[in-house]
């Protein structure tokens, strides 16, 4: 065995040359390519990050805008709701006012119609009462009734103040209203009773008026002495109307 130091040196030189050559033609180019690709990848990542940041910002802006739109929508809805409530309240108030007015008018009309109906019914009732009274009195004996009315007439004449009695005596032509034409005896009896009540002789003009129903009345130019069923029923009817 022998060791070749020249060979050792030459192989060492060969290795150094190989290291130098491969560093230049292999390791540096490949590592540079890796570095370039990493830089390109980093640039792409940076661009992607910037794009993503921009997209995130746009998304945030869009989200904020959408939130603003939602808030504005809610505000518009609230305003519309308030306006609708106000319109509803106004409409209700107006309808209530109109209904009150209509009801008041209806009440007024009803009251007026009720008054009219009541007045008509009262008038009809009065007329009916007069008719009833007339029919009832028609069934009574005329002599007794007329005698009672003659007594009542003399009493009324007696109850007159003296100046009225004097004016009655001084009147020219006194009409004595009768419900039926009396006979001569009756006329005489009536004239005698009236003259006694007046205390002086008067000229009586007998006038027939069936509307009296029953009784005797004295009529002159300035004086009327009512004494009949008609006047009594008229007084009753007046009292009934005033009672309402």
């Amino acid at each position: 065995m022998n060791f070749d130091f020249w060979g050792l040196g030459l192989q060492a030189l060969n290795a150094v040359i190989l290291i130098w050559l491969l560093s230049r033609v292999f390791w540096r180019p490949v590592s540079a390519a890796i570095a370039r690709r990493q830089a390109a990848a980093q640039a792409l990542l940076g661009d992607a990050k910037a794009t993503q940041d921009k997209a995130d910002a746009a998304l945030a802006e869009l989200t904020a805008a959408r939130a603003g739109i939602a808030a504005e929508r809610a505000k518009v809805l609230a305003e519309a709701n308030d306006a609708a409530l106000a319109i509803k309240a106004d409409a209700q108030s107006e309808a209530h006012t109109q209904a009150e007015a209509i009801m008041a008018s209806a009440r007024s009309d009803m009251a007026r119609e009720a008054d009219t109906a009541r007045a008509a019914m009262t008038a009809q009732a009065g007329e009916l009462a007069v008719d009833i009274a007339r029919k009832l009195l028609g069934a009574l004996p005329d002599e007794a009734i007329q005698a009672a009315f003659l007594q009542k007439l003399t009493d009324a004449i007696g109850a007159l103040p003296p100046q009225d009695r004097a004016a009655l005596v001084g009147a020219k032509g006194i009409d004595l209203m009768c419900p039926a034409d009396p006979n001569a005896d009756t006329k005489t009896e009536i004239t005698k009773a009236v003259q006694q009540a007046l205390g002086d002789a008067v000229d009586l003009n007998f006038v027939t008026d069936p509307a009296l129903i029953a009784g005797y009345e004295l009529h002159c130019d300035h004086f009327v002495l009512h004494n009949s069923w008609r006047s009594d029923l008229a007084a009753v009817l007046k009292e009934l109307r005033h009672a309402d």
């Binding site: 192989q11 491969l22 033609v25």
Partner: peptide, 27 residues
């Protein structure tokens, strides 16, 4: 020696091969 010649051949193969392999490196 034969070892030295083989070393030279290996060197040539490695350098030329590396050169050919790394000619068109791209992104």
């Amino acid at each position: 020696t034969q070892a030295i010649v083989t070393t030279w051949v290996i060197m040539v193969v490695l350098v030329v091969g590396a050169y050919l392999l790394t000619r068109k490196l791209s992104l």
